[in-house]
Amino acid sequence: MIDVVYFAWVRERIGLPKEQIETSAATVAELVAELKARDDRYAAAFGDVAALRCAVDQELCDFDASLTGVREVAFFPPMTGG
């Protein structure tokens, strides 16, 4: 099981801040493909991956990052701090 967390409009489009997912995805990109195929809400959130950023275990990463040993994956839009 892996914790998946969503922020900002990704959270709003999916309608959930967090969920636990049973997945055999080896990478973040594979997890995205799996989620995107679920239903319209996920398709809307993951429609344009170029507009998304991700983190594994609270570290920013690329979409080809491995999920081996990872406990939490996060998806969100580009950050707007400061």
Partner: peptide, 26 residues
């Protein structure tokens, strides 16, 4: 620090006006 906080610290701004709410684009 400012340049990196803008784009690499996990914050997201949402603006509420009379027309509704909009996430601020990076």
């Amino acid at each position: 620090l400012m340049d990196y906080l803008k784009s690499r610290a996990p914050f997201w701004k949402k603006e509420y006006t009379k027309d509704g709410a909009v996430w601020v684009d990076a």
